[in-house]
């Protein structure tokens, strides 16, 4: 299945060819953990990870056409 991945800030370095936004083919029944493994993103790396605009944890199952966004935790105003 195909999902769309968007990596920002410090996470850009994990993108193939350092492209911020790209399509990725995942095996069926993949979850967030599987996606991080494929992209070589360490689990312990502090992050904000969204699936379709909502926060998601490692076990969240992914579906075709999901949009996954990962960026560094931030704060401010």
């Amino acid at each position: 299945m195909d999902v769309q991945v968007k990596l920002y800030g410090l996470f850009k370095k994990y993108a193939p060819e350092e492209r911020q936004e790209f399509q990725l083919k995942l095996p069926p029944d993949s979850n967030v953990k599987k996606l991080l493994k494929i992209l070589n993103i360490p689990f312990e790396q502090e992050r904000t990870l969204l699936v379709n605009g909502q926060l998601a944890g490692l076990e969240r199952r992914l579906e075709s056409e999901d949009i996954i966004v990962i960026f560094s935790p931030m704060s401010g105003g």
Binding site: G9, E46, S72, P73, G77
Partner: peptide
């Protein structure tokens, strides 16, 4: 983990608000 506020200032927050 470098603090976003230091790296890009408060305007770094656009990444979060846009994607939420």
């Amino acid at each position: 983990t470098p603090l976003g506020l230091t790296v890009n200032g408060t305007a770094g927050v656009v990444v979060a608000t846009q994607n939420f």
